[in-house]
Simulated assay, not measured.
Amino acid sequence: MSFTKTTEQDSNYDHLEKMSISELLLNINNEDKTVPYAVEKALPQTEALVFQIVDKLKQGGRLFYMGAGTSGRLGIVDASECPPTFGVSHELVIGLIAGGDSAIRKAVEFAEDSTTQGWKDLKAYNINTDDVVIGIAASGTTPYVISALEMCNKNNIITGCITCNKNSPLSQVSQYPIEVIVGPEFVTGSSRMKAGTAQKLVLNMITTSTMIQLGHIKGNKMVDMQLSNNKLVDRGTKMIMNALDVSQEEADELLQKYKSVRAAIQNYSNGNT
């Protein structure tokens, strides 16, 4: 199959340095508006992968994200938001980045070019056939990610990917590829822009839909969220007030007693107050 890096093609705009701030913002925004439509075209691919993730997680498996640079950071952000949002273990969704944790803040030179480190990073977590591994790479050519997925395939571990180029090497080694073709970036090759936005949208969709399928949302509320700050405690109190038609004082007492919105609602509904 032919492979063209549309993420590396020349921007549709030129002489950016001559644009006013207003022009720059308008043109960047115009480009960003195209991203959700590109994501929409990839919904069937996304659904196929989410189906596999839900099935494996119901069996006790885990979800791994792997990437380098911006892609790796986006995976780590999404993974790190699952425990506070859905009340799940930090070991359920795990983000890995080429170069290790230090690469989250500062680029580690040539880390993404390793063809062995990705699999080593997965083996450190005792990766197995219950798990799902998603490679994230806008270019679809990152050796760290591709080589890891190749090893996953050899070991009968389900693989998927999120990339912004069609028919990329990463897509070729992924059992469930998601290709969101956003086209050239406003600044040529700066895939932290439209490509990064597309990846973030897809990651949100994957974990949110998965966690809903796993039962961590009731109605439209985060009943399993961690009560880790005053804002979330206040949100939890209001959830209980609305669900049980009780006063703020009663809701607060229930939340303080059971330390969980779900537990408070269930116990009150069962007459255990």
Rank of each mutant, 00 (worst) to 15 (best):
S2P: 13
Q9G: 01
Q9K: 09
K18W: 04
L24R: 13
L26R: 13
D32A: 12
K33H: 14
V35K: 13
V35D: 14
V35F: 11
P36Q: 07
Q52G: 00
D55Y: 09
D55Q: 15
R62M: 03
G69S: 06
V77D: 05
P83C: 00
G87K: 01
G87M: 03
V88W: 00
V88F: 00
V93T: 02
G95L: 03
G95W: 00
E112N: 10
L122F: 03
I127L: 14
I127E: 14
I127S: 15
I127K: 13
D130F: 10
G135D: 06
A138L: 06
T141I: 06
Y144T: 01
V145T: 14
I146N: 12
S147I: 00
E150M: 04
E150H: 01
C152Y: 09
K154S: 08
K154T: 09
N155H: 12
C164R: 13
P169G: 11
S171Q: 12
V173I: 12
E179H: 06
V182D: 10
P184I: 06
G189F: 04
M193S: 11
V202I: 13
L203I: 08
M205S: 04
T207R: 07
T208S: 12
S209K: 03
T210V: 15
M211T: 01
Q213F: 01
G215N: 05
Q226F: 09
S228P: 02
N229D: 08
N230G: 04
L232K: 09
V233E: 00
G236L: 02
M239W: 04
I240A: 05
V246G: 06
Q248I: 02
E250I: 05
E250P: 02
E253C: 08
Q256L: 05
S260A: 12
Q266H: 10
Q266M: 13
N267F: 07
Y268D: 09
N272S: 00
